[in-house]
Design a protein around this nucleic acid. Sequence first.
DNA 1: TTTATCCTCCCCCAAAATGGTGAGGCAAAT
DNA 2: ATTTGCCTCACCATTTTGGGGGAGGATAAA
Lengths: 237, 237
Amino acid sequence: MKERLEALCEFVQNAEDVGDLQSATEQLRDYYEIAHIVYHWVNSKGERFGAGTYSQDWVDRYVEKDYLRMDPVILGCLQRFNPVDWKDLDWSSRAARAFFKEAVEYGVGNQGFSIPIRGPAGQFALFTASDNKDDFGWASFIDENMRDLMIIAHEFNKKALEFEQGGDSAPAPALSPRELAAMTYLAKGMSRAQAAQEMDISEHTLRVYIEAARHKLGAINTTHAVARALSRGLIVV
Amino acid sequence: MKERLEALCEFVQNAEDVGDLQSATEQLRDYYEIAHIVYHWVNSKGERFGAGTYSQDWVDRYVEKDYLRMDPVILGCLQRFNPVDWKDLDWSSRAARAFFKEAVEYGVGNQGFSIPIRGPAGQFALFTASDNKDDFGWASFIDENMRDLMIIAHEFNKKALEFEQGGDSAPAPALSPRELAAMTYLAKGMSRAQAAQEMDISEHTLRVYIEAARHKLGAINTTHAVARALSRGLIVV
DNA sequence: TTTATCCTCCCCCAAAATGGTGAGGCAAAT
DNA sequence: ATTTGCCTCACCATTTTGGGGGAGGATAAA
């Protein structure tokens, strides 16, 4: 059985387009003998992609109702690091319970397990397995397969990132040390005067760095430059 | 052997303080028979913690020289999603090569493998294994153990997050939709006037959002607020 | 139902940031 | 050896932000 999983991992690794990922989710679902496997991600431009085995009806419904903005699975995972069982999410609001009821009606399954994955520049993805099982059966399934699922989720995400970067590769301009320092201090909320004092240079000089960084980053003002430097992982606050 | 690994995973899971994580890195190093295992992380407040087997001399040297700001491993992983072999990083600059040379002299090892891990609220961590090996030996070590290392890294991070949240829970200030929109437009480089136009509200109203966001985020100016919103993953540009 | 949060609008004025232009010394890379 | 990039300093007028105040209506949770 493990060999089959290896093969599936390789299948994901060799995927050449989103269709292959779609196919991979179907194979995984069959392999695990559960209701659904879904992977979807949001790239740094806020565009969404998905591959999974949910029925088209449910996907349409989901998009139509803009459930993404209230789905407790999404909201919960956005604030979490570790994989989460759907049972542990916040279903307290009326809207959330109605949503869950509807999801079950559409065949999503009454049990679910979602793995959040984050990349640089705000990339966020979710890998989900769901099924109809009782609590005990689901718990033992998760216990047994969680780690494999995490590895597979990782493979999916690697691919998703490849596809994204294939689209347009931002060469990530390098900033000089002083420029980085300037950006860092500004990101910490210092004024130019304060940052200049911290760096022990004149405010005029500091401005030169800021402007240089702005140009390199293609930013139109300081806030924009700091945002880009952060997004691209050039500085850490 | 696998059982031993399981035991180590459990050891990490049962860690009660940073000292236990430290001890875990030592056991992992011995288990894998390599030079070093290091885990270090930056929490949402920008504080750094670490647990690992590097010599105190090297750690002191690293802090003293503020190598964090130029270490190609850190810089590279901040821009990456997937685990990376040190060989694949950017060592082109003179400073980077000098740094590497020095690191080797301090016994860090000439080969390394680092796994970047991201959590919500801008949490960022790095799990690193390093050793002295030739390219082939290292490659086969990585090939064989990468997945286990990823799982272990995940366990470390789970613990680190627990400790952080245990210390003092930063309640993760939630911004309202309009506040988020305002932050997003500002992060894109728009002026208040432009953002207001984009949101189809008066500039005065926009200012209310910006100030509300500033206060919620504990930021002292707009740039700071945008930086925090980005760091904490509240907005994506 | 009450309470809380959000959304929207308005005033004034001081302080800070921006944009454009210019210039010299120094180190590294080609 | 020449070019390129980095670090440092300066002035001007204009635009943008920041800080303080106050107020009404809608919506949603408790």
